[in-house]
């Protein structure tokens, strides 16, 4: 199988990760598109025989980081986003949307680590290489990301209960 075929084969996984990373479908597919273009431009840097998937996620990570850097404003606004929708949880679609928003409120670097571990099921070493950080940092970001999400979800549950009581 040549690189083109393997890239085509990896698109669904890139899309899954991108969707979780940036939220909406259009921006996610933009990120995938930019990643594929970048991958072709940088293919000479890929060492044949090594894991193309891991390399591709490294490329995507770099593309994403550059994009975020270019629009730093949205990042600093993250903490000021309105509170999560407060409602008694009904229906999967709503849950997914809340999860979307909760993930969006994580700092980019924590979000990336959590998603690579959870969705891509990369080993901690692979994540460290893909993101370009020491493995200790992977573990601490993972820990912080999970704890933040847990607190957000707890807060949401409490809010929902309050609303039901009213």
């Amino acid at each position: 199988m040549n690189e083109a075929e393997r890239l085509v084969e990896l698109i669904p996984r890139l899309r899954r990760y991108a969707r979780a990373l940036v939220g909406d479908r259009a921006s996610a597919d933009d990120l995938v598109q930019d990643t594929l273009e970048r991958a072709w431009a940088k293919l000479h840097l890929y060492r044949r025989g090594t894991d193309l998937r891991a390399w591709l996620f490294t490329v995507m990570h770099n593309v994403h980081v550059n994009k975020v850097r270019a629009t730093r404003v949205t990042d600093t606004l993250e903490d000021e986003l309105p509170e999560l929708a407060q409602r008694a949880s009904q229906g999967d679609a709503l849950l997914v949307r809340d999860l979307d928003r909760a993930i969006a409120r994580l700092p980019t670097e924590q979000r990336a680590v959590l998603l690579l571990v959870t969705l891509e099921e990369m080993s901690y070493e692979e994540v460290a290489r893909a993101v370009g950080i020491p493995i200790g940092t992977v573990m601490s970001r993972l820990s912080r990301a999970r704890e933040k999400l847990r607190m957000m979800m707890l807060g949401q549950g409490a809010a929902a209960k309050l609303k039901v009581v009213k």
Partner: peptide, 30 residues
């Protein structure tokens, strides 16, 4: 944390089954 992992996979794994837009495939196949 475990439940969170399950929720994430349940939310985003369906993307794997979505039809891939033609332009992405074209870009990948160069």
């Amino acid at each position: 944390y475990c439940r969170l992992g399950e929720a994430l996979r349940a939310a985003y794994d369906p993307v794997l089954a979505e039809p891939v837009p033609q332009y992405l495939e074209s870009t990948a196949a160069r």
